[in-house]
Design a protein around this nucleic acid. Structure first.
Lengths: 116, 116
DNA sequence: AAGTTATATAACTTATTGGTTATATATATC
DNA sequence: GATATATATAACCAATAAGTTATATAACTT
């Protein structure tokens, strides 16, 4: 996943309306009108949010007559989660190195310690 | 984690410069100047990015003389990941229900099927 | 064919973002 | 005390975002 793709995914997730739309899609495909109903917001506003979600690959659109059913997709979420997991792992590994170092220093510093 | 906190976290992650700053912090605390060095960007721009990251709780600032060392924090990431994981789980559960339904229909529809 | 419904697009407004330069503040050093 | 360094703040600019209303387009209904 390219940085730009990560950008698109996090941008899409960074809005409570869009996350609420996704949450509603967990119970299956919905039309734009169905998605718009619960929000105090115009239909074009919802269409704009859907475009942002689609651009991130978080939803795909079908065609059923005049309706354009919206369906959620998991792939970008998995890629984003994977970036975050890798990062947290790297952080915790570095904390652990620091912890061991502090522990070693407390046990009794020697001329071999990287600091001192 | 409140929706506003999730907003702050995803907004902070939705910029490649900020993700790069976080990545650099994986190797330990850094001063603002150290963080700014690799970027083709002014120091105030980096300070602004740090403020966004701090607002999300993704970094904390220390004090060491005139330096304000920046340190990464994992907590908001874990909360965000948790939201995403829950969501993916919900989605996959609903897909699975749909899949079983389609399977059942293909095996031979009956008057008890929820559609038909 | 006329009217209705579902959705998208356009044009506009306001607020926010990401950057800039210039400057202020606080600490360190000579 | 004067100067230098680390960081923050202010004022500004251009681009983007999130909403609006009005309108266009396409498909469905009668």
């Amino acid at each position: 996943m390219s940085p730009a793709d990560l950008d698109a995914t996090f941008i899409a997730l960074a809005d409570p309306t869009r996350r609420a739309i996704l949450a509603r899609l967990a119970s299956g495909e919905q039309t734009v009108m169905e998605l718009a109903a619960p929000f105090a917001m115009s239909q074009p506003a919802i269409s704009k949010h859907l475009k942002v979600l689609e651009h991130a690959g978080l939803v795909t659109r079908g065609r059923d007559g005049q309706k354009r059913p919206v369906r959620a997709q998991t792939e970008p979420l998995k890629a984003a989660t994977s970036w975050m997991d890798d990062y947290v792992r790297a952080l915790e590994a570095s904390y652990q190195r620091l912890d061991s170092l502090l522990e070693a220093l407390q046990a009794g510093p020697t001329s071999n310690d990287p600091i001192n």
